[in-house]
């Protein structure tokens, strides 16, 4: 197995597993709590901003609570509900496409040896190394010529570039950790190939592939520059709308949009952490 196929994802996998495993002892638990505070604390003012008005310096706590930022964000004219829907549509589509190409690619990299494999490994990692904006500018020029610039399908296609490496990396590690002997075992116990797929292969690979999909979703969800450029500004997703209010210094509206922007990401993270923790619990004693 080459460094790419196993060592790198495995090392990453070990880190994730270690983090997800039940912390042992007080020290680990306090470290985890501290990490949580560090992650969550910067976000609290954003939530507070979204529900306050006229909160001026000497006052430690907001003087008035006000939901007008939320009313404005949810009004029909704000474009935010549509952007939320558009972001979901784009992230789901990009995730679907990235999985369609990335899972077989990850499987091939993990399980097969073929000529030019090294080159493929490097190419897979390239989008993580090359500045995304450089790629986006070239892509924009091409998409302008073929009429994909400024369209949702164009943005979806562009989002495959940053999402695909994550899908390939994660699924390569999922497949290299998968014991195909379990499939043989099931066949020999009397399961037909489709039963093996349904009762053994899919349930065993699903958690890992779900994590790959969640990664892809989050990466697509948080794209800014790529969406702005390839979308010709005309495909406003949540990060684009958020940026408009952040640069305008509108902390209230920006706070409300930020909460809406972060929520799916938090949901996805919690979900993937649970999947990983369950997988880790299963793996701990079998290894």
């Amino acid at each position: 197995m080459t460094a790419f196929g196993a060592a790198l994802p495995r090392r990453a996998g070990a880190l994730v597993r270690r983090a997800a495993a039940r912390p042992q002892g007080f020290a680990a638990r306090s470290a985890l709590a501290l990490l949580l505070v560090l992650l969550v604390a910067p976000f609290l003012p954003v939530v507070v901003w979204s529900v306050t008005r006229a909160w001026f310096y000497p006052a430690i706590v907001p003087q008035t609570l006000d939901l007008s930022a939320w009313t404005s964000v949810f009004s029909a004219t704000s474009g935010v509900p549509a952007a939320l829907g558009r972001s979901v549509l784009i992230a789901l589509s990009a995730t679907g496409l990235a999985m369609l190409f990335g899972v077989p690619a990850g499987r091939a990299l993990a399980l097969h040896r073929f000529p030019g494999r090294r080159l493929v490994e490097v190419l897979v990692l390239a989008p993580l190394v090359v500045p995304p904006l450089a790629v986006a500018m070239g892509l924009h020029a091409v998409f302008l010529k073929i009429g994909l610039a400024g369209t949702v399908p164009g943005v979806v296609l562009a989002h495959i570039i940053p999402t695909l490496p994550y899908v390939i990396l994660v699924s390569a590690s999922v497949f290299s950790a998968f014991d195909t002997g379990l499939e043989d075992q099931a066949r020999s116990l009397g399961a037909t190939p489709s039963q093996v797929l349904r009762h053994v292969t899919v349930p065993l690979l699903a958690p890992g592939l779900a994590v790959a999909a969640l990664f892809a979703f989050l990466v697509s969800w948080s794209q800014y520059g790529l969406t702005l450029l390839v979308g010709s500004g005309r495909v406003p997703t949540m990060p684009l709308i958020l940026m408009q209010f952040v640069t305008a210094g509108r902390q209230d509206v920006a706070g409300a949009i930020a909460v809406l922007t972060v929520l799916p990401g938090v949901l996805a993270l919690v979900l993937s952490a649970r999947i990983l923790a369950a997988a880790a619990a299963r793996e701990r004693t079998t290894s």
């Binding site: 075992q185 053994v200 065993l204």
Partner: peptide, 17 residues
């Protein structure tokens, strides 16, 4: 394999986790 009635058991127990 599934229609042979020949069941394999290896040195690794290969229980479905």
């Amino acid at each position: 394999p599934e229609r042979r009635g020949a069941v394999l058991m290896g040195q690794d127990h290969r229980l479905f986790p």
